[in-house]
Simulated scan of single mutants.
Amino acid sequence: MMASGSSILSVYYYMGVDAVQESLLVDEGALNNALVSLSQALECDLGDSLPDLHLLRGRCLLLKGEEQNAADCFKRALELERPGSGDTSALRCLLEALLALFAQSGPDPGPAISQLEVWVRRAEERYAEDAVEAELRYLCRTHTAEVTELSRALIRGGRLDLVKRLLNTVQPNRTASKKVLARSMSI
């Protein structure tokens, strides 16, 4: 009896998930097994249309140190997300991969910066504004040194839009503090 395309896809998907879970200790063999299973799942009829497969593949590639290939997977996962989706996992992973590419870029960070700018704009088209802001805030808080260097490079290059976005995410909400102050003065 021939298995259906979706059941084969499920088998490869779960093989990939199992291998990714095993690879948390960064076992090269488990990572390679996960990548093989995920590649096979992507070749199935519906495989290429599932953001989770691209996300898992990207995570494996990121663990292997293949940041650009991982970023490409995360980009595809982000493109496949439904507009307005609340799941920003692909965005978080993409921002971290692109920040790693920036950190490795050496004297010419231009291409990495351009990718970051483009994909933040695309994320704003796909997700709610507060969701993108939350992911940028998370990036700033978990990768402070790298984001500081990125901001310096953006300022040197006169590319201030992303710097403003990053600063706005870590800046305290001024309207809330003004309301509290106004309320305390009226008592």
Rank of each mutant, 00 (worst) to 15 (best):
V120N: 02
G16I: 05
R126H: 03
T148Y: 03
D52A: 10
L98G: 01
L91V: 12
V120F: 04
L154G: 05
L46C: 07
C73Q: 12
R183W: 11
A34P: 03
A182D: 01
E124V: 11
M185A: 13
L181Q: 13
L95G: 05
L50R: 08
A134L: 06
R92M: 06
L80V: 11
R122A: 14
R156V: 00
T88W: 09
A123R: 03
S151A: 03
P83T: 14
V170D: 02
T144D: 00
S37A: 15
K178I: 08
S37K: 01
Q68S: 13
C44D: 03
G65M: 07
I8T: 08
S114L: 14
L9I: 01
I8R: 09
M15N: 10
D161S: 15
L25T: 13
L80I: 10
A176I: 02
A123D: 03
S49T: 07
P107H: 04
L181V: 13
E133C: 03
T175R: 05
T142G: 12
T148Q: 11
E117P: 06
K179S: 15
A131D: 11
C44W: 00
L99K: 07
L91F: 09
E81G: 07
A131R: 13
L181Y: 11
A131E: 09
E129H: 14
A134Q: 06
V170I: 14
E117L: 13
K64I: 05
V147S: 03
L95S: 06
L181N: 12
V163I: 12
E22Y: 00
S49H: 08
A70E: 07
V170F: 01
A71F: 08
E43H: 05
I8K: 08
R137S: 09
S114I: 05
W119R: 09
G110Y: 05
R152S: 07
E96V: 06
R59I: 09
L61Y: 05
K164A: 14
A103R: 07
V118H: 10
E81F: 04
S186C: 06
I187H: 03
G110V: 10
S7W: 02
G158T: 12
Q104C: 11
R126T: 15
P172H: 12
S151N: 03
L62V: 09
R122H: 10
Q68D: 07
A97I: 05
Q21C: 04
Y138D: 05
E124N: 15
Q115I: 09
V118G: 07
L166P: 02
S114C: 07
T88H: 11
P111H: 12
G16D: 04
L136Q: 02
L31P: 03
E96C: 05
A131Y: 04
A182T: 03
R126Q: 12
A97P: 03
A128K: 13
L31N: 08
D130F: 10
T175V: 10
M15W: 02
A112M: 10
V118R: 08
S23K: 01
E125C: 09
P172I: 06
V118D: 13
L181M: 13
R82G: 07
G110S: 15
E43S: 12
A128Q: 14
V11C: 02
P111V: 15
D18I: 01
L24M: 01
S177D: 08
G84A: 10
